[in-house]
């Protein structure tokens, strides 16, 4: 049921994006060269929240944060604000078991990292889709 709801929502969002492209969804993107075509929402959470750094094809996943979009991204991904996310990572600093994604200061930096690393995953505003990128998952806000 929820899935159906979500599908409905996704379809609606897709229709909106197609029709207007004005409304900002966030897209998790990867280099076009990667063989990975898509990931599930759960896989996205696992990768970005440090549970494991592994792509579905068993290659290492390298999540990248993009500073201007970070708050929106995590809100969309796990419904948490930055304070919670920071507190989460702070708790894990000492165990060393997991580490936060690599930080990209700007959109350009992100594009640069993803362009040059086939295992890097980043997120962009759906309206600013760079070239040579493949959308793995679109998060609607």
């Amino acid at each position: 049921m929820t899935r159906f709801m979500r599908l409905t929502r996704v379809a609606t969002v897709a229709m909106l994006v197609i029709s207007t492209t004005a409304r900002a969804d966030i897209a998790i993107v990867i280099n076009d060269a990667s063989s990975i075509r898509q990931i599930s929402h759960s896989e996205a959470v696992n990768i970005f929240m440090g549970r494991y750094r592994r792509l579905p094809n068993d290659s290492v996943a390298l999540p990248i944060d993009q500073a201007p979009l970070k708050a929106r991204f995590y809100k969309a991904l796990v419904q948490k604000d930055m304070a919670e996310i920071n507190s989460y990572w702070a708790r894990l600093v000492f165990s060393g078991r997991a580490s936060p994604p690599q930080q990209a200061g700007t959109y350009e930096d992100l594009v640069d990292i993803v362009t040059h690393n086939n295992n890097a995953l980043g997120y962009v505003d759906a309206t600013q889709m760079p070239a040579h990128m493949h959308v793995l998952l679109t998060l609607s806000e």
Partner: peptide
């Protein structure tokens, strides 16, 4: 909450 995190990350130390 801590247990959630420990379990989520499979962090036995935590």
């Amino acid at each position: 909450r801590t247990a959630q995190i420990a379990c989520f990350l499979d962090d036995s130390q935590l």
